[in-house]
């Protein structure tokens, strides 16, 4: 059987007894098909039960297990050990740009607040009842927003975004992509309400288009694209409002 001994250097932090994080190394016999999460589970079950991390589905859809793996934000359930250089160790750290609660667990409060701030729900023109039936939405209309509805809230994009690190008030990639998702949905009429957040300084204009968010996204959501499209739309809004005031409703 193809097994590999791999050393995992894992950032540990116990807030009750330590003042700062430290690395701890574990040697794990890895199967060829393993992902980093399997190795963490091996450590937890067999080497050190005190290691804390989040995980659940093991199929890249629950979004729990985002971590920095050799410096890259990745889902540990999708980071195959075979893809890392032979003989080298694998370094695992909690998602950067977030406070460390403990070991590989980060504090998510800021992200959750931002998610809520962008009103990520359908705001209809007129309340629809069950008797009215479903909306008509053509495959083309669905396609407009579908890509931006794939976000699993894994927060890898926030860990990749240097702007979020420097300006923590920035609403950030995932939440803005979600805003765009609802703005583009033919069932929704809430864009004016979301503009307050989007067009504000902490909204799309904080983004300097590094594009790292889209590169690390495990679901090809392309938040960078969503943000640039919203910048264009906001700019058009501004010109319409100031240069053609008669068009204002």
């Amino acid at each position: 059987m193809s097994q590999r001994q791999i050393t995992f250097e894992i950032l540990r932090y116990d807030p009750e007894t330590e003042s700062e994080p430290r690395f701890q190394a574990y040697c794990v016999p890895c199967e060829e098909e393993w992902v980093v999460l399997d190795a963490l589970n091996y450590i937890k079950d067999n080497l050190d039960g005190t290691l804390s991390y989040r995980w659940s589905c093991h199929m890249a859809v629950c979004g729990s297990c985002g971590m920095m793996i050799n410096g890259e934000p990745m889902l540990s359930c999708k980071a195959f050990v075979r893809d890392f250089p032979n003989g080298g160790s694998i370094r695992v750290e909690p998602l950067t740009h977030f406070p460390i609660e403990r070991d590989l667990v980060v504090v998510m409060d800021d992200f959750m607040d931002k998610l809520q701030a962008v009103k990520p729900y359908v705001i209809p023109k007129k309340k629809r009842t069950v008797e009215d039936g479903t909306y008509k939405q053509t495959p083309k209309q669905l396609h407009q927003y579908q890509q931006y509805s794939m976000c699993i809230n894994c927060m890898l994009c926030y860990a990749a975004c240097p702007q979020y690190a420097l300006a923590p008030d920035f609403i950030g990639p995932a939440a803005l992509a979600l805003t765009h998702r609802y703005n583009l949905d033919s069932r929704d009429h809430g864009r004016p309400q979301r503009q307050e957040v989007v067009a504000a300084h902490e909204g799309v204009w904080e983004c300097s288009f590094v594009g790292a968010c889209s590169e690390v996204c495990p679901k090809d959501v392309d938040p960078a694209g969503a943000i640039q499209q919203m910048k264009i739309a906001s700019t058009v809004d501004w010109y319409l409002e100031h240069l053609m005031p008669w068009r204002r409703k």
Partner: peptide
Amino acid sequence: KELTRLDHWGCPWSRDKDGR
């Protein structure tokens, strides 16, 4: 009824050509 509500709340149900 419940699946219709989900549609009103934004669930991206797959659609036929005519939008149903």
